[in-house]
């Protein structure tokens, strides 16, 4: 029996590269790559179909091509990528609803993999040090990407109830980073001077793009259901990360985040997303036991290695590599 995979959100880096990787995988017969805009990078042997997931046509594609696995990677992180917050929310939430509606009717469907984010856990002082998959956010994220992700997961849970015969696997990924990937976290660490919250120093994990792609591949091919946290080992704090990236930082009062965003944009210091402030203050950690034991996935890079690889100046990377060779 042939394996046919449909991937959404392929015009962006993670989606496109996943399509490329899966299309070269011998265990998969066909990869159908879907997005409303054509990808600017190679998607390998995947077949691109221009379709908006908010359009019922997606259902006909799934039925016609007898798709058995859907990888939903269409959740957009920044308003910039979608052309405004309204459009971002539309694509993320309404798009997911439409896609799931189409999936519900598709008889060929056996497996759904959704890329979610650690943002669903929110960031608050009352958080446990490490979130396990069963834990709920202490304060549900109020705006932007985090809220979208939480809503997407809600609809996915609803779908899992209605189609118990389909394996549904949700990957809650830590912030994915790569030198060519622009996310709010990457924007933050690209500012010439980093505004750090005064009196707070949040902990965070990251996931290197390479590991994120491998995790998605593993999840697409496994038969595991349920929610799985995916993050690299180890943890960094915001200031520690700023030092590794060799960036000077200025402490700012946390409640002035919106003003910092405006002043930063006015002075041309780059994109500071005020929604990130709770994350910078309190951070977030995820327990990855299930990732290791159930999914059987082990990230190749630790948080420190991934962060150094992406954000540290070239000389520092060389020195770290030299140290690694020596030790």
């Amino acid at each position: 029996m042939g394996k046919v995979v449909l991937i959404t959100g392929v015009s962006r880096l993670v989606g496109g590269m996943t399509a490329q990787r899966l299309s070269l995988d011998p265990d998969i017969d066909r990869v159908i790559a879907v997005d409303a805009v054509p990808p600017t990078h190679s998607i390998g042997n995947a077949q691109f179909v221009r379709a908006d997931i908010r359009n019922p046509m997606i259902g006909r594609i799934i039925a016609h091509e007898k798709v058995d696995t859907v990888l939903h990677l269409g959740v957009i992180m920044t308003p910039r990528q979608a052309g405004g917050r309204t459009s971002q929310k539309d694509i993320n939430v309404i798009g997911t609803m439409q896609l799931l509606a189409a999936c519900q009717r598709a008889e060929s469907l056996q497996r759904l993999v959704v890329k979610s984010s650690s943002a669903v856990y929110g960031s608050s002082p009352g958080d446990p040090a490490m979130f396990t998959e069963e834990m709920q956010a202490r304060h549900t994220p109020v705006g932007g990407f985090g809220k979208d992700s939480a809503e997407v997961e809600n609809y996915v849970r609803g779908f899992a109830r209605r189609r118990p015969d389909v394996q549904v696997c949700t990957l809650r990924m830590a912030n994915v980073i790569d030198r060519s990937l622009r996310t709010p976290l990457a924007d933050y660490f690209s500012m010439p001077v980093l505004p750090v919250p005064l009196g707070f120093d949040g902990r965070f994990q990251v996931l290197h793009l390479e590991d994120a792609l491998e995790a998605l591949r593993t999840a697409a091919l496994s038969s595991l259901g349920g929610t799985i946290n995916v993050a690299a080992d180890g943890i960094l704090t915001v200031r520690q990360a700023a030092r590794i990236a060799r960036k000077p930082f200025v402490p700012v009062l946390p409640f002035t985040a919106a003003a910092v965003q405006q002043v930063g944009a006015r002075l041309g210091l780059g994109q500071f997303d005020a929604n990130q402030m709770p994350f910078l203050c309190f951070g977030r950690g995820m327990d990855t036991t299930r990732m290791r034991t159930d999914l059987g996935f082990e990230p190749a890079m630790t948080t420190r290695e991934a962060f150094t690889d992406v954000f540290a100046p070239a000389a520092r990377r060389a020195a770290v590599a030299m140290g690694a060779q020596r030790g």
Binding site: A129, M130, D201, R203, G234, I235, L236, T237, R239, Q240, A241, A242, R243, I244, G283, G285, R316
Partner: peptide, 10 residues
């Protein structure tokens, strides 16, 4: 240089 280790609890 940020060359210190912080555990998962900070």
């Amino acid at each position: 240089t940020g060359d210190y280790v912080v555990d998962e609890f900070g």
